[in-house]
Design a protein around this nucleic acid. Structure first.
Length: 221
DNA sequence: GCCCAGGTGGGTA
DNA sequence: TACCCACATGGG
């Protein structure tokens, strides 16, 4: 039994990302930065209701109005600028086409996204994996917390270090990365919050370092 | 009231 | 490079 199998057995298929279109995935990835998803849902719903869930609409809407609509997601003035910055980037670099954007070689696209204001490593990789279906492992606060609590990573391991750990030990498979990250987030939400983690009930079983590596059985030699 | 959430960018030493 | 802090709402 390894981490993936334990989480999968406890939680079942995740079917992520909760969004209707690739563009909606990207909007959600920006809005959920350090924010509970329930708050993001309200903001997305406001954008849907006002027909603003398209690239051209985000480009056209005044920043102040955009900010007001996404207010429930928190950091709303910052995030309005970030959505604007992404829309501008997509227009300038790819003619406003997500299809064209995702046709870009992954390493090059990753660098380009990281250069956009408000899009850091986790948001970049969430976009690549969940909007583009590209095999890039997403690392978030729960991933780090779970790994460090099980003695599988240093407290201050860098983002790319943790990402590399997974990508080097897993088959190159976007669907697997998709499900794995989703399982980690749900495990974190349910059992591994920063205060009072319910380790005794967690499918990954407590604070102690695990002998098993954090990879699915089929990935092992 | 307090803590926390699927981060990121800017400023300072 | 390595910290420190602002950014902000809503739920437990």
């Amino acid at each position: 039994m390894d981490f993936y199998a334990a989480m999968s057995r406890a939680l079942g298929p995740m079917s992520w990302w909760p969004a209707r279109t690739p563009f909606e995935v990207i909007v959600g990835a920006i809005l959920t930065q350090n924010t509970a998803w329930t708050n993001v849902e309200r903001a997305i719903e406001n954008l849907r209701r006002t027909r603003l869930l398209t690239i051209s609409a985000i480009e056209r809407v005044p920043t102040a109005r955009l900010a007001k609509l996404i207010r429930p997601s928190g950091y709303f003035r910052q995030k309005a600028k970030k959505l604007k910055a992404f829309a501008r980037f997509l227009r300038q670099e790819y003619g406003g086409s997500l299809t064209r954007m995702f046709a870009t070689p992954t390493a090059e696209l990753r660098e380009n996204l990281l250069a956009v204001h408000g899009i850091g490593p986790e948001t970049t990789d969430s976009i690549l994996l969940y909007a583009g279906n590209l095999a890039v492992f997403v690392v978030d606060a729960y991933t780090r917390r779970i790994l460090t609590r099980h003695g599988l990573a240093e407290e201050k391991a860098g983002y790319d270090e943790v990402r590399g750990f997974f990508e080097a030990n897993l088959p190159y498979d976007a669907q697997l990365y998709n499900e794995y990250h989703a399982l980690i987030v749900n495990t974190g939400k349910n059992w591994c919050r920063s205060k009072a983690p319910k380790c005794d009930e967690c499918p990954l079983g407590g604070f102690l370092p695990q002998p098993a590596v954090a990879i699915p059985a089929e990935a092992r030699a």
